[in-house]
Amino acid sequence: MTPGGIVTQLVHLALMLALAPLLVGLVRWLKARLMGRRGATPLQPWRDLLKLLRKQPLLAESASAVSIAAPYLALGATAAAVALVPGFARGMALAPMADLILVAGLLALSRFALALAAMDVGTAFGDLGAARQMSFAALAEPAFILSVLCFAILAGSTNIDAIGAVFAEGGPGLRVSLLLALLALLAVALAENGRLPVDSPSTQLELTMVHEAMLLETSGRYLALWEMQAALRLMLWLSLLAALFLPFGTAPAFSGVFGWAAGLLAWAVKLAGLAVALAVFESATARMRLFRVPEFLGAALLLALLGAVFLFLSTGSA
């Protein structure tokens, strides 16, 4: 753990926390522009957060300590996962811990906390959202792990930094398996973040909600924490996709001002590109019926499995 690594880690974390709501705002703004509206400025999510923090929160009478503690735990777990995923630089202080399975576990922890908070008050919507979210995760998680299997075979490790380093050198080349793993990961990312076509991030139609249904009873700073958690999760997934599939241009740990600037620029371009892709995709896609979602995620799971099988075919002979 070098001092350079620690500094990089701190800068990375600060950037991630500051930019996450901006990213959400950017996607919203892009979608509005694509639909021909002017749209709110990308700063709007930050303003909303600060406004929510100033308000007095209201808790339901039947709420227990779970409603109070769960948002801190969920946001803490997501932030811990964010600290592990490399952004603009590689070789951060926490890089030895940056294991893909651990990231999946931390996301599961925040999901569990969210579902607990949803069930705490005892309303139909909260229970419904929690049940649906855990069921979708039951298919999303194996799809993620099977994609990790593809990376583990190609890079020999499940450490994100190590995978990024191997891929940045172009060792594995273009592979059908990587294409399949990418598709599977994209589907998982859409489902985990509650984006179209799995769940609409701005829906107000109760019957179809998943994520929003769980937050109906929260307000004030608790709502702000949950919103921040959702934003951070989107940031995490986009950074993860960038770190695994677009590992080019990432700066080494402590490479001076110019190295950092180049890394920051590359990272910003990647994130912006992914945000544009997400906005275009969401604008062009209709929300699918709730009971089609398992098929969607099941297809992702099978594609990832297919990717692994093809890797066996090509590595079995080597």
Binding site: G173, R175, L179, L180, A299
Partner: peptide, 22 residues
């Protein structure tokens, strides 16, 4: 083998045909 463009592209295009089957 892997890492050569000619090979990679052929591989990827054939994979695309398979993917479209799914």
């Amino acid at each position: 083998g892997f890492g050569q463009l000619s090979f990679d592209m052929a591989h990827l295009l054939a994979g695309g045909v398979l993917l479209l089957c799914f």
